[in-house]
Simulated scan of single mutants.
Amino acid sequence: MYFFVLLILIIGHLHTVSAVTHSLKYFYTGVSGDINFPEFTTVGLVDNVTFIYFDSNTKTAVPKTEWIKRVGPGYWVSQTKTCINLHQFFKNNIQVAKDRFNQSMSTGVHVFQWMYGCDWDDETGVIQGFDQYGYDGENFISLDLKTLSWIAPKPQAFITKNKWDSDKADNEYLKHYFTLECIEWLKKYLQYEETSQMRTVPPSVSLLQKTPSSPVTCHATGFYPSEVNILWQKDGPFQHEDVETGHTLPNGDGTFQKSVLLTVKPEEWKNNKYQCVVQVSGINKDFIKDLTESEIQTNRDTSIGHIITVVVAGLLAIGAAVIGVVNRKKKSKKASDDGSNSSNKSASNV
């Protein structure tokens, strides 16, 4: 995530977000050179929480929150196709930037980035838009939304500035996007999020053990929301010694999983009543699994393989993403929930 940090540092001075301000932001990063990082990644955030992600290795746009799935199934097909096209678009812009900076023969790592979005103060109604491009960790060109003109801090960006300043129609489109369309999508996403927060999904609870002498793991998965307590009981009271609590991890379907490990000798739990108790926020019911030989699953069970797959999928899903359109000249159409359009604005060659 090094390059995202660079971009955030670059644009951090442009705007601040107060306690009542909501935001919709998109980060795009193209990379060239020998580096262990995807050539192209896109990340979308609502209130600084990632809701969609794409990279050129997986070639698939994926949801990072449960509520974004409400936009409709066609959304993901559309977003994936757009991101694949944007990958080539960013490769072209990196080459243009390298030519401008006399780096055509350079074999080192170069980074081209794009960040844009909008802020909305739900108390005052004040809105802001921001649109900025960076190259190799420095600001390349940015939009002054008040004057509808482009600011080029480096002479290598003057060609781009002159080209974009002269396109009055496109700059009017940007004004429309940042003051109306982006804000409308932000409000829509906030409504989806609010509705989703009222949703609850009960967990599936399993007791896992590698060998008869290994610690016993209580694994809960498939629950929503993410707030969960997993506790071990011994003959009634909760036991806190010899208990190791893992992190709550996301599953690929928007739900969550968590494990709590209990170190206990076989003769100890066989001669006492041990129970795993799972409590999920918003669900007024405890999910209890008795520690008995019949309830324990081992690595030889096919169900364990499924659980491991879910865990790996959850780990791989951590990250974050979103999409734009390749041709900036394309006129904005009315956004819809079927995936035929999105909250992204269009892109342009530098």
Rank of each mutant, 00 (worst) to 15 (best):
T147N: 10
K329Y: 09
D253R: 03
T200D: 06
V264S: 04
G282I: 09
L249H: 06
R328A: 13
I318K: 15
T211M: 03
G246Y: 00
S226R: 14
I35E: 14
P266S: 14
T16K: 14
D121N: 15
W120T: 02
T255P: 07
G339P: 05
F27L: 12
A347I: 01
F3Y: 15
V350A: 05
K210N: 12
S206Y: 07
D99K: 05
V62I: 06
F178E: 09
N327V: 11
V326H: 08
T29A: 13
E293W: 01
T298I: 01
L249E: 13
L148C: 07
F101M: 10
V228W: 07
G33T: 06
G319K: 11
N85W: 02
G254T: 03
T195S: 09
S204L: 04
T217V: 15
D144T: 07
Y173L: 15
T16H: 12
G339Y: 08
A321C: 04
G117F: 03
L316F: 02
L261I: 13
V62H: 00
H13D: 10
K265M: 14
G236F: 05
D235W: 06
Q191L: 13
L24A: 12
K175N: 15
S149F: 00
N272H: 15
H240L: 09
W120L: 15
F51P: 04
V46I: 15
Y28E: 10
D122V: 10
R328N: 09
Y135A: 11
E184K: 04
G129T: 02
T21M: 11
E39M: 01
V77L: 09
K334M: 13
L190Q: 10
L180N: 12
V322L: 10
A152T: 08
T160S: 15
D144C: 10
F40H: 03
A347V: 01
V264H: 02
L148M: 11
H87V: 07
S149L: 11
A152P: 05
H87I: 02
A317C: 05
W120N: 10
V322T: 09
S142Y: 05
G137H: 02
K163H: 02
Y53V: 00
G282H: 08
K234G: 01
G12F: 11
V126L: 12
Q239V: 15
S104L: 10
T147F: 00
L145T: 11
N341D: 12
S56H: 04
N344H: 06
S206D: 07
L262M: 04
S340I: 05
T29K: 05
K329E: 15
V260Q: 05
S281M: 08
R328D: 11
R300K: 14
A220W: 01
N251R: 14
T65K: 04
L262R: 01
I283R: 05
D131T: 03
S332K: 03
S332A: 12
E267G: 01
E194W: 00
D170K: 13
T292Y: 09
V311G: 01
K59F: 00
S343I: 08
Y274A: 05
S226P: 11
A335C: 04
T50I: 01
Y2P: 02
A347S: 07
K64L: 06
T58P: 00
P73V: 12
V126T: 14
H22L: 03
N341T: 14
T21Y: 00
L45M: 10
N57T: 08
F238D: 03
T50N: 04
T107P: 02
Y75C: 07
L6M: 10
Q156F: 07
T42Y: 01
Q113F: 00
F3A: 07
G44A: 14
